[in-house]
């Protein structure tokens, strides 16, 4: 069970700031994550290929989608970095724009996939990242609908759930994740999440000064519905434009309240039953 359910209402300060601590690590390295600055993405897809190479992720379909240069379509069990291409036609605001963005698992502070996993296959690492242990996963599929971003999925032939590991097997050895390493323009930046958030704020300010009004961060706010994400983004337009939910909420957020209501209803029912029995006797 994730820390926020055990500890009380979602959004409790302790859980938000340090998910590794909340998961039980007494000593741990700083929380690590991604800052994906889409303003410098050139759509080369080196991230997609490097990820697959390193993690031996299989090719997952040859389909011309017609979605601009995006034939990958979305994150899934066998796509852990997905570059979106959005052609925004010219309008009163300006000329034609071609937005590009490398999407990835958000490694949420409040991770619903983690919350619902019955086997403990999904776990929080000492880096604050969320990882599926493939030798534990039993393929129940609960995590799939739990993710508010539609990231995690099951492999058809295999049954298990798979997603980005934030290259747990690299960062433990002092290397950066494969996608960050391969990215030629440093659109994908890896580092301590605190540092990345600071850097990202400066970058947004810089872009605003340069007249790029639409620049904004996505996932960097600890007060958002998932407690902020370990992998966050600089977008140049509304999240919906990129296929991202504008107001993601950890889907287990209401569970405590729901169970309380169930508890109250059950207690009420029990009381009514008791009253009825006692009343009859009296």
């Amino acid at each position: 069970m994730s820390a926020d359910l055990a500890g009380g209402a979602a959004g409790a300060p302790g859980a938000g700031a340090d998910p590794a601590r909340a998961a039980g690590y007494l000593e741990h390295p700083p929380r690590m994550g991604f800052f994906t600055d889409t303003s410098v993405c050139i759509g080369c897809k080196a991230c997609e290929v490097a990820c697959k190479e390193w993690n031996a992720v299989p090719e997952d379909g040859l389909l011309l989608t017609g979605m601009s240069y995006d034939n990958t379509q979305g994150l899934g069990a066998s796509t852990w970095r997905h570059v979106a291409f959005i052609e925004k036609p010219a309008d009163e605001a300006g000329d034609l724009r071609w937005l590009m963005s490398s999407d990835v698992c958000k490694h949420c502070t409040e991770a619903a996939c983690l919350d619902v996993c019955p086997t403990g296959a999904l776990m929080r690492t000492e880096f604050g990242t969320v990882v599926v242990q493939e030798d534990v996963c039993n393929g129940c599929g609960y995590c799939i609908p739990a993710c508010p971003f539609g990231v995690i999925d099951q492999r058809r032939d295999d049954g298990r759930a798979w997603k980005c590991t934030l290259c747990y097997d690299r960062i433990g050895d002092g290397l950066e994740p494969a996608c960050a390493k391969a990215c030629p323009t440093d659109s994908i930046q890896f580092g301590p999440v605190d540092e990345l958030r600071e850097r990202a704020q400066l970058r947004v300010a810089e872009l605003h000064d340069a007249g790029t009004e639409g620049a904004r961060l996505y996932g960097a706010d600890p007060a958002d519905g998932v407690g902020g994400t370990g992998a966050f983004f600089l977008l140049l337009d509304e999240p919906e434009v990129y296929g991202l939910p504008p107001d993601p909420v950890v889907t287990t957020r209401d569970l405590p309240r729901i169970w309380r209501h169930v508890g109250v209803a059950a207690a009420g029912l029990a009381a009514a039953g008791l009253a009825a029995c006692l009343g009859r006797r009296a």
Binding site: C44, K45, E48, V49, E59, N71
Partner: peptide, 21 residues
């Protein structure tokens, strides 16, 4: 970007082929 010249080094690789199929 996804392919290279006359394709000998990209069309035959699944990871590149799926990017521009």
């Amino acid at each position: 970007t996804e392919h290279h010249t006359a394709g000998g080094m990209s069309r035959f690789l699944p990871y590149l082929a799926e990017l521009q199929p």
